[in-house]
Write a protein that binds this DNA or RNA. Structure first.
Lengths: 132, 132
DNA sequence: CATAAGAGTTCCAGCCGCTGGAAGCTCAAG
DNA sequence: CTTGAGCTTCCAGCGGCTGGAACTCTTATG
């Protein structure tokens, strides 16, 4: 199948698929006319990458996961290690964002938000606030 | 004061400060020797940007905030609007990450993580899992 | 006073992960 | 036969820095 079909079936943009080929993440056969030609198994791999990316894995991690995916002899522990590491990262990001949310939330709450120039958000950002 | 001192006091890297000047976010006086020369007020502004960036505002948003910071006549409502919008974005990001966390958490939980090649994480990523 | 270290300057290039756009090819429908 | 969609390649740019080269300037020490 052509790249457009593979794109639709995998949820990736054609441009993205070409880019992945460019950086050597995935290869594709070529038809006689020079068009890329994708098998169902290729689409599986594309979707695998799409899901992994959307779960927060970097392209390099996808490369690793993909080789683990392809290598039927690898231990599941190898995969679990990568996924667990990622889980930690996600947790750290959530914690960080939650902190941000709290701080910014305070600022917004304390800002009267009217026509007066006095603004606790600006004060907070400039480090002139009384607490924290 | 020189850029290094301003950097230390604002929590930004000298490179970053030069970059901000490059893109016209902040300007700096020059001393006779050509070195950038920062006043205490400059450092205030640098720190303002540093905080804003660390709270998740983009450089462009920082530019807006900075002009609101500098303009003593603006209404606090203007600032509040930007901050509230940002708060929504942060909430969306948290929700997204929480979703990811849950999904990846399930996969990791179900993976026995031993030497066997059978792996529920790989299965999940490849879209072969039974549920979700 | 010579010299060496450290901090400043400029500019160019690269990171990640795409995405847009130009110019040219191929293919299917009308 | 023409039109338009879809494919190809390549080059450039996004955001937000960061690294490195090559240079000048300042400061401390022998």
């Amino acid at each position: 199948m052509n790249i457009g079909t593979a794109a639709r079936q995998s949820g990736l943009a054609p441009k993205t698929i070409r880019y992945y080929e460019d950086i050597g993440l995935l290869t594709a056969d070529r038809a006689a006319n020079g068009y890329r030609d994708y098998s169902n198994e290729d689409v599986h791999r594309l979707r695998f990458v799409q899901r992994s990316r959307s779960l927060g894995f970097s392209v390099e991690e996808c490369r690793q996961l993909l080789s683990l995916y392809t290598d039927r002899d690898r231990a599941s522990a190898d995969v679990k290690a990568i996924a667990t590491e990622k889980l930690g990262e996600i947790d750290r990001k959530i914690a960080e964002l939650t902190g941000l949310r709290e701080m910014l939330g305070h600022l917004v709450e304390n800002c009267h938000g009217d026509a007066r120039p006095d603004c606790s958000i600006i004060d907070g950002l400039s480090g002139r606030s009384r607490d924290h």
